[in-house]
């Protein structure tokens, strides 16, 4: 186990070194007009965090993302459990969910903007719709795939519906549900940032679009790096727990 942890650490360091090297090479071949070097970006990012400007935007994005993720999880899990429990409803709604999943959500954004107006609610809604469907689909399949004999075991013990969900269905489906939440996390983040990039006055997405408009490459590179580090760290942590939960099966 310890050797495994050490190997994982070595791999992570190796990956970071490779990515930084590739970045430096790209910088050398494209030059200052398109990129900044890793060292320059790091320096600018530090400066950014010691200044005042970034914080309101960071807070805005984090708040929008947190609310969107919460909504996606609650709504996605509810839809998933309902459809997983009810064969007929699942047969009716699953094709619709899959169809919705496959359209580019950005096409819905104009409608959402008209519904919610510019600002936080539209961003949150746009982030959430990215996360809801994968969470719902994963949850539905997870609940449906719970082995019948486990449910029968609960029935023989006279478990009520609530207890059945809490003490058998949910834990039995948890590994797959967690995978759904992990996928939902990434997609909700994408959705929230996309929402900020268009028709928004605040947030990291807005800053990014602004930096493109002003050709502020320092800011562009710093923001991209911040987002990548955040998303990658979160994904690695979630994947770690995902594997841990699956390992018991």
């Amino acid at each position: 186990m310890k050797a495994q942890t050490r190997n994982a650490a070595i791999n992570t360091v190796l990956l970071l070194v490779l990515v930084t090297a590739a970045w430096q090479l790209l910088y050398w071949s494209f030059g200052d007009a398109a990129l900044r070097s890793p060292a320059q970006t790091l320096a600018y990012t530090v400066k950014l965090f010691s200044g005042e400007m970034i914080w309101p935007h960071l807070r805005e994005t984090m708040a929008a993302f947190a609310v969107a993720l919460l909504l996606a999880a609650v709504i996605g899990l509810s839809i998933g459990f309902t459809l997983g429990y009810n064969r007929f409803a699942a047969d009716v709604f699953e094709p619709m969910l899959v169809a919705l999943y496959s359209i580019p959500k950005i096409t819905l954004y104009p409608i959402l903007l008209l519904m919610f107006g510019l600002g936080m609610p539209a961003k949150v809604a746009f982030g959430a719709i990215h996360g809801i469907i994968p969470i719902a689909l994963f949850t539905m399949n997870a609940v449906r795939n719970v082995r019948v004999v486990l449910i029968k075991t609960g029935l023989v013990l006279n478990l009520g519906r609530g207890e059945m969900v809490r003490s058998i269905l949910f834990p039995a489906a948890l590994p797959e549900i967690f995978t759904g939440l992990r996928v939902g996390f990434s997609l909700t983040l994408i959705g929230t940032l996309l929402g900020e990039m268009f028709a928004s006055q605040r947030g990291l997405g807005y800053l990014l679009m602004n930096a493109i408009g002003l050709h502020n490459i320092d800011l562009l590179m710093a923001l991209t790096t911040i987002l990548i580090v955040f998303a990658a760290t979160a994904s690695i942590v979630l994947l770690h727990y995902d594997r841990k939960i699956h390992a018991r099966l």
Partner: peptide, 18 residues
């Protein structure tokens, strides 16, 4: 109705893996 005092052992593995 599921009666009290009846225990069932199924053919498949019914252990809760978690």
């Amino acid at each position: 109705r599921i009666p009290d005092g009846v225990g069932v052992v199924f053919q498949e593995d019914a252990c809760f893996p978690w």
